[in-house]
């Protein structure tokens, strides 16, 4: 191989190694975030019965409302996948479109969640009411905080794709973002089940 070809092959190999390294590191971070949520779930599991004479989940949660939220988030996870497929094809418009839909659905989820929080707080069932409500708001709220960060990140990435196209760094970051967004829906599976379904059971 000529010197230039050798050099290019080296650079490509190094870049691929770098990408593999970064994506693995981000995966490791996601695993740690799972432990974060696990601690919050453990706390919720222990405290969910401590209503301090107040109402429990069965009385407070509206299951149809939660189902709509869940479908919004689940669909956004799906459309995020579609955005990634488009990005792999370097299809700028499609990527932006699917990211936009993902963002909209994520925003719907967040607004619905905040609305529910607001309603609970106004009724006197805020996070100060009992151990149950403290753990509920913190678990679900932490998920909501992650969603918020995801929305901000998504907006920043989408604009970078639109303005600068598909650089290697942007593709890598899109991969990381989609990992993050899918992970948030996976956590929601458990919130949906343990907080809302089991709460109503």
């Amino acid at each position: 191989m000529s010197d230039i070809a050798t050099n290019n092959a080296t650079v490509l190999a190094e870049q691929q190694t770098n990408d593999g390294k970064t994506l693995f590191g981000f995966w490791a971070y996601i695993m740690t975030d799972c432990l974060l949520f696990a601690s919050l779930f453990a706390t919720y599991a222990v405290l969910h019965g401590n209503t301090a004479g107040g109402e429990s989940g069965r009385d407070l949660f509206s299951l149809p409302y939660i189902l709509v939220e869940t479908f919004a988030l689940l669909t956004s996870s799906f459309t995020c996948g579609l955005a990634m497929l488009a990005a792999n094809r370097h299809a700028k418009r499609q990527t932006a479109l699917w990211l936009g839909i993902t963002f909209a659905l994520g925003l719907v989820f967040l607004v619905m969640e905040l609305t529910e929080f607001g309603r609970l707080a106004r009724e006197g069932n805020g996070w100060q009411r009992s151990g149950f409500l403290s753990s509920y708001f913190t678990l679900v709220g932490t998920h909501g905080l992650h969603i918020t960060i995801g929305l901000v990140w998504m907006a920043a990435l989408a604009s970078r794709v639109w303005l600068k196209g598909f650089t290697r760094a942007t593709l890598r970051r899109l991969s990381m973002f989609s990992l993050f967004w899918h992970f948030l829906d996976i956590v929601w599976i458990f919130i949906f089940t343990i907080v809302y379904m089991l709460g109503a059971a």
Binding site: V46, A52, S130, G131
Partner: peptide, 11 residues
Amino acid sequence: MHFFTAGGGGN
């Protein structure tokens, strides 16, 4: 909040 407080449902 009431995660670990002596009252209010903390533990």
